[in-house]
Computed example of a mutant assay.
Amino acid sequence: MPVAIFDLDETLIDGDCSTLWCEQMGRLGWVDPASFMRRNDEMMEAYKAGELAMEDYMAFSLEPMAGRTPEEIEHLVGPWVEDFIEPIIFSDACKAIAEHRAKGDRILVISASGVHLVAPIAERLGIDEVLAIDLDIQHGHYSGATTGVLTYQQGKVTRLLEWLDAEGENLEGASFYSDSRNDLPLLQTVDHPQVVNPDPVLLEHALQAGWPVHVWK
């Protein structure tokens, strides 16, 4: 069946879940809010420019979670999703998901954020299939490292092709919705690229390529 693929940050939600979780770690007292968010914002600017080394960002953003159990993080992420993520879900995103579901499409979220955030957010959207950055677990605790291919830039294509092969699916008729220049490799791979609230570089590319451009609110 056709696959409808959605980016998460700034596509399904009006914000970046990794940044919002960094703010939450400050509220929890795990980091110094001012200095930690200053560094986060610097790295997010590199992301917007297509120049972020995702390995560096993940090492930075996961360090406060090192030594904590997945169960502890899950217990904290659930209420955070309810309080901080649900209010910024785009209503137009929910409509698009519903339209694809009504057509019988298989729905997948693929995100360059950690799976500990992406999976519970997708669940709130009624989506149970996700590809995100996987976190390393040692002796039942997060190590602060990642594992596997990071779902970022070309890595999204790599992970998606592996998933399709494992699931017996293919890209025929596939759609992908994204806001970011970092997702150009995957947008150029699918039959139906869909551009949502695009950054300037992606907007220019979309207009030249004749891709649909959506303004979601």
Rank of each mutant, 00 (worst) to 15 (best):
E42N: 08
A49D: 13
L184W: 02
I137T: 08
F6V: 00
G126T: 05
L125F: 08
P120H: 05
K217P: 03
C94F: 10
R124E: 03
A174L: 11
I85W: 02
F176T: 02
I121D: 03
D136V: 11
L161I: 11
S175P: 09
N197C: 10
R68P: 01
L62P: 00
H141D: 04
L187P: 00
V130L: 08
T158V: 09
G210N: 03
H100G: 01
I88L: 12
T11V: 02
E82C: 10
D14F: 06
D191W: 12
E10L: 11
T158P: 02
G50M: 11
G26L: 14
V157K: 04
M37T: 08
V31Y: 03
V109C: 03
A132R: 01
D41G: 08
N170P: 01
T147P: 07
S180L: 09
M1C: 12
F176Q: 04
V130D: 06
E99R: 14
K217W: 09
D14R: 12
R27P: 01
M37A: 07
W30T: 10
E74S: 09
D179Q: 15
E45N: 03
K95R: 15
K217M: 04
M37G: 07
A206F: 12
R159L: 09
Q208Y: 07
P87W: 15
R39M: 03
L20E: 01
A98I: 14
P185D: 04
F6P: 00
D191K: 06
V3R: 03
V196L: 10
Y47G: 02
G104E: 12
R159F: 07
H141W: 08
F60D: 02
W216I: 03
K95D: 11
A4R: 03
P193F: 00
S35R: 15
V196M: 13
E82V: 14
P200C: 10
P200D: 07
M25R: 02
F60P: 01
N182T: 06
H214P: 13
I121P: 04
S113R: 00
N40A: 06
P200I: 11
P120V: 06
P79K: 11
M65P: 00
A119M: 01
L52D: 07
H214Q: 13
S178G: 09
F176R: 01
L150Q: 01
P200M: 13
V215P: 09
L161T: 12
Q194M: 14
A112H: 02
E72W: 15
S113A: 11
I97H: 06
A4Q: 07
F84K: 15
G67I: 04
R27Q: 06
M65T: 04
D136K: 14
W30Q: 12
S111A: 10
R38C: 08
V3P: 05
W80S: 01
I85D: 01
E169K: 13
S18K: 06
L12D: 03
L125M: 13
E51S: 06
D32I: 13
A102M: 04
I137D: 04
F60N: 11
A166P: 05
L108V: 11
V215A: 13
K48I: 05
T189N: 07
V31Q: 05
V190A: 02
L131G: 05
L125E: 10
S175H: 13
A112Q: 02
G140D: 08
D41P: 05
